[in-house]
Amino acid sequence: MIQTAAMICLGIGILFNTLGVIGILRFPDVYTRLHAETKMTTFGTIFLALGVIIYAGWMLSGTNDSQYLTLAIHTAIAVIALAFTNATGSHAIARAAHRSGQLPDPSVVDRLAEVKSRD
């Protein structure tokens, strides 16, 4: 039962990671690729880690080995660090891309370029 839950979490994680990678290969410009990268791979990795945490909790209740407690807590810390740094890093990439003069290619509205051209 618990094994099935961990397996489902791993499956969802792999699915979203796959869609994220397909997204960065398919989308037309940098900003839409960033959408795919940031959201999908972060969400996928959160689910992978959730699967690992469920598995570690199951092993902990079975064997009572403190190694699995360490595994679960460290995995949670790694994922929290990853979620924060990924969001901030994608913000930095988007800002750098706009500063280097790359405008969103198919775009219906661009308020930032309007403000920059007015200055």
């Binding site: 869609l19 997204g23 959408h35 999908m40 969103p104 198919p106 219906v108 509205v109 308020r111 930032l112």
Partner: peptide, 19 residues
């Protein structure tokens, strides 16, 4: 994520920057 996943598959995007 589900929203973006559907867009990855269908390729239907209308991007833009707002304030």
């Amino acid at each position: 994520n589900i929203d973006v996943a559907i867009r990855v598959i269908t390729g239907n995007v209308k991007p833009g920057i707002v304030r």
